[in-house]
């Protein structure tokens, strides 16, 4: 896992922020729209005056127009609860070359970047790692100290075990009580339908969902110069398979392209962002691009 000091700066850091596309339910005041009304600047609506209301909240101009006592209500802005779900299955520890980071390393780096960004803009972050089951539910972290703690937590994660990102998502959904930006970092080597089924309840409960599918370059395009290889599944779910890479390349590349497309479709069904990340690419570029698209996309809430 990358050290905290090696976390790159986002190339769009000057204008980028982690924005919520849906209203979120932070506990603290923040910069994101929340379903709550309260002391705020943004006008929300009127409601009839009730006994006990502060007279300062009465909209007298409205009273003059409607002859009814109406009280102004303002939309309260809260912080953005961010849940970073890191798939730590054995497959995430794969790297096809020594010069390349493993998928988990790349995902951790991305998670660290996002955690730093969130903490930097006053949001709170919860880092959840697991293969198919959640461990102890971590507390939310915020502020500079929280950012450091999040990075250390990310750094402590290691790959192992059989992964089930869908189960991870389902388990996290049962633990999230407030609307949260849930970001899953996984290679999504699972049935896309299961992923869609796992994301759908979270979407229904109003969670803002995003999935970063981290794949090794060799998983996106099988290297033909591997020649004859005996392939083994790190998670042990499939028997070893010997093939000629040059022969298998075309079929595999097409199959993987179909799988990625299916994952994207499943994510779209749950109104979740889907980002395909090549682990050979720069984290800042990928994450920054995603944040940029997210910040300027439709439905962004601030």
């Amino acid at each position: 896992m990358p050290a905290v000091t090696s976390i790159p700066r986002l190339s769009h850091s000057g204008s980028l922020e982690l924005a919520a596309r849906r209203v979120v339910e932070g506990l603290h005041a923040g910069r994101h729209r929340s379903p709550y009304t309260g002391p705020a600047v943004e006008f929300a609506d009127h409601r009839p005056y009730l006994a006990g209301d502060d007279l300062r909240s009465v909209d007298w101009k409205a009273y003059a127009r409607t002859d009814h006592l109406l009280v102004r209500r303002y939309r309260e802005e809260r912080d953005l609860p961010l849940a970073l779900l890191l798939d730590t299955s054995a497959s995430m520890g794969f790297s096809s070359a020594s010069a390349l980071p493993s998928k988990l390393a790349w995902a951790g780096l991305a998670a660290a970047v996002l955690a730093l960004l969130a903490c930097d803009q006053g949001d709170r972050v919860r880092v959840v790692g697991g293969a198919s089951e959640l461990g102890p539910w971590p507390r939310e972290l915020g502020g500079p100290a929280g950012a450091t703690a999040a990075c250390l937590l990310i750094d402590s994660l290691s790959a192992g075990g059989a992964g089930d990102p869908a189960a991870l998502v389902r388990a996290a959904g049962t633990r999230l009580s407030r609307r949260t930006l849930v970001l899953l970092l996984s290679d999504l080597l699972l049935d896309p339908a299961a992923l869609g089924a796992a994301l759908a309840p979270l979407a229904a409960r109003g969670h803002d969902l995003a999935v970063i599918q981290v794949l090794d370059p060799s998983e996106l395009a099988l290297p033909a110069d591997w020649e004859r290889v005996a392939l083994s599944d790190p998670e042990g779910r499939h028997p070893d398979f010997t093939c000629d890479a040059a022969d298998a390349k075309a079929g595999f590349d097409a199959a993987m392209a179909r799988h990625v497309a299916a994952c994207a479709t499943a994510c779209a069904g749950a109104r979740a962002d889907h980002v395909l990340a090549d682990s050979s690419r720069d984290v800042a570029e990928v994450v920054g691009g995603w944040l940029h698209r997210r910040g300027h996309g439709p439905g962004t809430t601030r």
């Binding site: 591997w226 499939h238 298998a248 079929g251």
Partner: peptide, 18 residues
């Protein structure tokens, strides 16, 4: 040709088509 061992998580998709 000697067969080179290689871990590969996406083995499922390779086995399906190959």
């Amino acid at each position: 040709r000697k067969v080179r061992p290689q871990p590969f998580p996406a083995l499922e998709f390779l086995a399906k088509c190959e």
